[in-house]
C-alpha cells in the first residue's frame, strides 16, 4: 500500500515537471506531421543548431549536410542535404520528421528522435546492455522544438 502511494507520488512529480508537454507515447500525427509544440514552448534555433551538431544529442550532421552548420566538421551523406528544408516543409511536417521520420518516409533509415516504444532490443545508451524501463527518447521535447526552430530557418 505504501509502495503504491510512493509510486503515485513519483508519477505525479514526473507529470508535474512535464506540465504542458506531450509525452512520446501521446504524440498525434496528421499524415506524418505534428501540429503543436511538444514542449508547449517555442523552440530556440541557436540551441537547435547545437543539438544538431553535438554527437551525444541529435548529431544530425552525421548523416545530413547543412551548409549553415559548416563550422562543425564532417557532415555525412546518408540522408539528403537539409539546405532549404524550411522552404520545402512546414514546421509541423518538420516536427513530424524529427519525432519519427518513418511516419513520413516509410522504411527510412532515419532514427526516431522522440519515441520510446516499439524497438527491438532497446539498449541503455551505448553500453550494449538492455535499456532500463521507462528509458527516455533520444531528444527531449524541448530539444526537438529547438531543432525544428532551426530547420525552419533553412530557406532556399
Amino acid at each position: 500500500m505504501k509502495i503504491t502511494t510512493i509510486t503515485a507520488a513519483v508519477l505525479f512529480t514526473a507529470g508535474a515537471a512535464l506540465a504542458g508537454e506531450v509525452g512520446p507515447k501521446d504524440v498525434v500525427y496528421a499524415e506524418g506531421a505534428i501540429e503543436a509544440s511538444l514542449s508547449g514552448a517555442p523552440g530556440d534555433a541557436a540551441a537547435g543548431a547545437k543539438t544538431m551538431t553535438t554527437r551525444s544529442l541529435g548529431n544530425c550532421i552525421a548523416c545530413h549536410e547543412v551548409t549553415a552548420l559548416k563550422d562543425s566538421p564532417f557532415h555525412g551523406e546518408v540522408g539528403p542535404s537539409l539546405d532549404g528544408t524550411g522552404s520545402r516543409w512546414t514546421e509541423a511536417e518538420l516536427r513530424g520528421i524529427v519525432v519519427n521520420a518513418k511516419m513520413t518516409f516509410e522504411g527510412t533509415v532515419m532514427p526516431a528522435f522522440y519515441k520510446v516504444d516499439g524497438f527491438n532490443r532497446a539498449g541503455d545508451g551505448y553500453t550494449g546492455k538492455a535499456a532500463p524501463e521507462n528509458f527516455p527518447p533520444v531528444l527531449t521535447a524541448q530539444q526537438v522544438e529547438d531543432v525544428v526552430a532551426f530547420l525552419v530557418t533553412l530557406k532556399d
Partner: peptide, 9 residues
C-alpha cells in the same frame, strides 16, 4: 556495431 544502434547486443 549493434551497440552503436543503441541496442542490447
Amino acid at each position: 556495431c549493434v551497440r552503436d544502434t543503441r541496442a542490447e547486443t
